[in-house]
Simulated assay, not measured.
Amino acid sequence: MRTPPLVLPLTAALALALAAGSANAFTPAGQDIVYDVNGETFEGYLASAEGEARGSVLVIHDWDGLDDYERQRADMLAEEGYDAFAVDLYGQGNRPQEIEKKRTETEKLYEDRERMRTLTLAGLAEARAQGAAEASVVMGYCFGGAVALEMARYGEADGVQGFASFHGGLATPDGQQWPQGAGPILIAHGGADSAIPMSQVATLAEELEAAEAVYEIQVYSGAPHGFTVFDSDAYQERADAKSWAAFLELLEEAL
C-alpha cells in the first residue's frame, strides 16, 4: 500500500505569509531604518515583537539586496515574538536588478571579508540601538547564508548565540578555519540545489565535526537553490515549512 504524503503543519507566521500571495501584496508592518557606517549610508528594516521580545534575529539578504522578501521574513519573526532587523550590506538605494550587477556586489564582499563582517556587525549594533534584544541569532538567505557562516567562523560578536544558513554558500574561504565549539548552527539545504553541490555539504560537515561544533544540517529532497523564496519558480512549500520549523527550534534553544 502506498504511504500517504507527509503533510506539514505551517506556523501561523508562515501561513500568513503564504496567504498574502505575491510579494506585491505584502505590506510591511515594521519600519525602514537609515543608519551610518563609517560615513556611508545604509537602510535596514526593523520589525519589533509585541511586548517583551524573546530575543532578536539579524536577517541578511540574498544577492538582490534588502527587499520585501527580507522585510516579510522579519515581520514573520516579529509575529513569533522576536525582534528582527534586516541588515543592508550594499548601501542605501543599491538594489541591483541585473544578474551581473548582483554578482558584482556579492563579489566585492566575498573579496573583502573584513568589510563584510564590519557591515554585518554594524547592522547588529544598529538593531540594538533601535531597541532590539541583546541576545541574537544571525541568519541569512543564499549570499546572506554565506555571510551568516562567515560570522559563525568569526565568533567574536557579543550576544550572538546562534547562526543559520538557508540555501547559502557553504565553502570555507582559504585561510579560514572553524573555531572549536562553534555554534549552534543550522544549515538548510536543497537536495536539488545545482548552485551549491552536495560535496560542499559533506566538506562542511567534516570541518564542523573536526571543530566539535554544535550544528545540524537538513537536506530537503527535490528542493532547488532558493527554495524559500516566495512566488519564485524555485519555491518549495514543504522544504520552506520544514526549514522554518527547524529555525524556530534553533531560536527556542539558543535564545
Rank of each mutant, 00 (worst) to 15 (best):
R2V: 09
P4V: 11
P5C: 07
A12I: 12
A15V: 07
A15M: 08
A17G: 11
A17H: 11
A20N: 10
N24Q: 15
T27F: 08
T27K: 15
G30D: 07
D36I: 07
V37K: 02
G39C: 05
E43H: 12
G44V: 01
G44N: 07
Y45N: 03
A47E: 04
A47W: 01
S48D: 00
A49D: 03
G55L: 05
D64R: 09
D64A: 09
L66A: 06
D67I: 03
E70Q: 15
R71L: 00
Q72H: 13
M76F: 08
L77A: 00
L77D: 01
A78R: 00
E79M: 15
E80L: 08
G81I: 02
D83P: 06
A84K: 06
A84H: 08
F85E: 08
L89W: 07
L89D: 06
Y90L: 12
P96T: 14
K101Y: 13
K102G: 02
R103L: 15
E105G: 02
T106M: 08
K108I: 05
K108Q: 14
L109E: 08
L109C: 09
Y110E: 11
Y110M: 13
D112C: 00
R113E: 10
T120C: 09
T120W: 00
L124F: 05
A125L: 03
E126G: 07
R128D: 03
E134N: 04
S136Q: 13
V138T: 06
M139R: 04
G145K: 02
A148S: 14
L149I: 09
M151Y: 01
A152C: 10
A152S: 10
Y154F: 13
Y154A: 12
D158F: 01
F166D: 12
G169R: 07
G169P: 04
L170S: 01
A171H: 05
P173N: 09
P179T: 07
G183W: 01
G183M: 04
I185N: 00
L186I: 10
A188L: 09
A195F: 11
S199C: 02
Q200T: 12
E207P: 03
E209P: 01
A210Y: 08
A213H: 07
Y215E: 06
E216G: 10
S221M: 12
G226Y: 14
E237W: 06
R238S: 04
R238Q: 13
R238F: 00
A239F: 03
D240I: 04
A241F: 01
S243V: 02
W244A: 05
E249T: 15
L250D: 03
E253H: 11
E253W: 11
